[in-house]
Design a protein around this nucleic acid. Structure first.
Lengths: 315, 315
DNA sequence: TACATTGATTAAGCAGAGCTTTAAGAAGAG
DNA sequence: CTCTTCTTAAAGCTCTGCTTAATCAATGTA
């Protein structure tokens, strides 16, 4: 039968994106990992990954095996946790993955509350940029994933995982203070055709969302500056170099000087119907161990407070 | 993390019932297996099995780990099969488990038909006495389990498995030819209180079924001979040493001389409501590979023919 | 009571799987 | 063209894990 340790190597490589990175994570050397993969491929009689510059890419067979491997690793982790808890030991580590801007607003207060409630549980937080992270949950590397979807970006399949939306976070148009487009409230995208936009690089969620909205409105936008960091984006806007779309919860925690935010009124019917907002989800395995649902509740509380704060400030 | 190969050892030991038997199956020596188990227990910090004369018994923690381990092993098998089939290789072995009397009547014709349809698939049949075998399906040692339930015996939980009833097989009272109780048709259990019964040893399904029926009818039965083999039972009945309850499909394939079979009319209301019959089920994993459902269909055909043959002969 | 049998464990030795080191080939980026 | 980065190749070494042989414990038999 397939050797489970070799399968684990494949899973790690797939998650890390390259053989050498996976080796690093596992405290091995690259040749060790390479050898195991070679043996796995010989065993199965087919290629599992394409070696190339800048890492590896899984073949179809490799992706197939990855899906099973993640399940296997997750079950092994669960098995250990189940036995230890049957023996009276409480599990003591909860690994969270979150996208960067969640780490700044939603997560900290929930983390603090959780730490107060469970001082013995070690918390670990790591950056995971959507749409990644589902595999890490399946394999048990993460106990809880906080992810998002921007309009125009499809939601990944959550095979065998539990996913729950905890917040709908409107995207507001942010302008430099005194910008003429802000004078008469709720401009349309068409009214902003001459502006210089600030958003993420191509492929980054907010860029995709902005571009799909622009396409629906039949407008061509000019992206002048690319950054995925909303703090940077806001600083640029305050400096007057452009305009941008920023989630309301981010604005709620930002200094109040030098900018103005207001909703963007949808151009066409289709764009209006699909509200311009990012949705925030939590993802975890089915049958999570005790503190995971508790953490979810805390995150929901955090989300509720953020929503209320935002609604108060921005109507 | 938990070493998968050690978990596999535990699963094998649990299935085999003893360390030495498991070692045999894995072509290892007993000390090798013993050492792996010791390490697994040290790793987890708790006992997984109680060593004792005549084999080992799992502790609560051990059973917990077993359940996960079976899932892991099953997933690893599935993973291999999935990758191989993605690479174009057809799987080539189908492992069946069946209780003994199914192996004599239901299975052979289905097996023959399957062999004709898939000459390249190697078939393997092994004896599995209910209520065992579910774990073997989960871990992938068996692709298909043919099991039964007698009245009065609870049906095991089929966690994560697909179970389907393919036959309801009435239990008929079988008497030596010319026995007076057979003269006026459909006797009640109460009418047979003086008889010497032939059935399985305590714990065997048909014994349990007989005893629970007797208890409901408020009758005390005398078991004179114990055998689990219906052929033997029938031979004893023909020799006139007692009476017994035999499934109709078994009788349908037996020589017709020297005995008479007729339905038993239920004594109390409760016993009558629950028909005196054994139910036959097939069990397999969800998402079975291609030929498994086909084999199930063939077994259903086999069951249908057996039912018709029985109905014709015994009304 | 002594002895044989069955099954698990301990101890010591040995083989091989798998890791490391070192070196070399490939494929961009500057 | 060189430098960097990633993968693979080859050779050697370590340590896991298997085997053999002996011991212990429990049970059944003479």
């Amino acid at each position: 039968m397939l050797d489970a340790n070799r399968v684990r190597v494949l899973v790690e490589v797939a998650h890390a994106g390259s053989i050498s990175a996976a080796a690093e994570r596992m405290s091995f050397t690259a040749p060790a990992v390479s050898q195991q993969l070679t043996k796995l491929e010989r065993e199965l009689g087919c290629a599992l990954l394409e070696r190339g510059r800048g890492g590896v890419r899984l073949t179809a067979a490799g992706r197939e095996l990855l899906a099973y491997g993640e399940r296997v690793m997750g079950d092994l982790r669960d098995a250990e946790a189940a036995v230890r808890s049957a023996a009276g030991e409480a599990p003591r580590r909860l690994a969270l993955g979150a996208f960067a801007s969640a780490g700044k607003t939603l997560v900290p207060s929930a983390l603090a509350a959780f730490r107060r409630a469970h001082p013995d549980v070690r918390l670990a937080l790591s950056d995971v940029e959507p749409p990644d992270g589902y595999g890490l949950v399946t394999s048990g590397d993460l106990d809880l994933l906080i992810t998002h979807r921007y309009p125009g970006v499809p939601l990944p399949a959550a095979a065998g995982l539990h996913r729950e939306r905890i917040l709908v976070d409107p995207l507001l148009l942010v302008l430099p203070e005194g910008h003429p487009a802000g004078e008469r409230g709720a401009p349309r995208l068409e009214d902003l055709e001459g502006e210089e936009w600030i958003c993420g690089a191509p492929g980054i969620s907010n860029r995709v969302a902005l571009e799909s909205a622009a396409q629906e409105a039949g407008v061509r936008l000019t992206v002048a500056h690319e950054t995925r960091d909303y703090e940077v984006m806001l600083a640029l806007i305050r400096a007057g170099v452009g305009v941008g779309l920023i989630p309301r919860t981010i604005l709620g925690a930002a200094p109040k000087e030098g900018w103005a935010a207001l909703p963007l009124s949808g151009g066409s019917g289709a764009a209006r119907r699909r509200a311009l907002a990012r949705e925030i989800y939590v993802v975890h395995r089915r049958r999570p161990w005790r503190p995971v649902p508790e953490m979810v509740e805390m995150l929901k509380g955090s989300a509720r407070r953020a929503r209320e704060r935002g609604a108060e400030r921005f109507g």
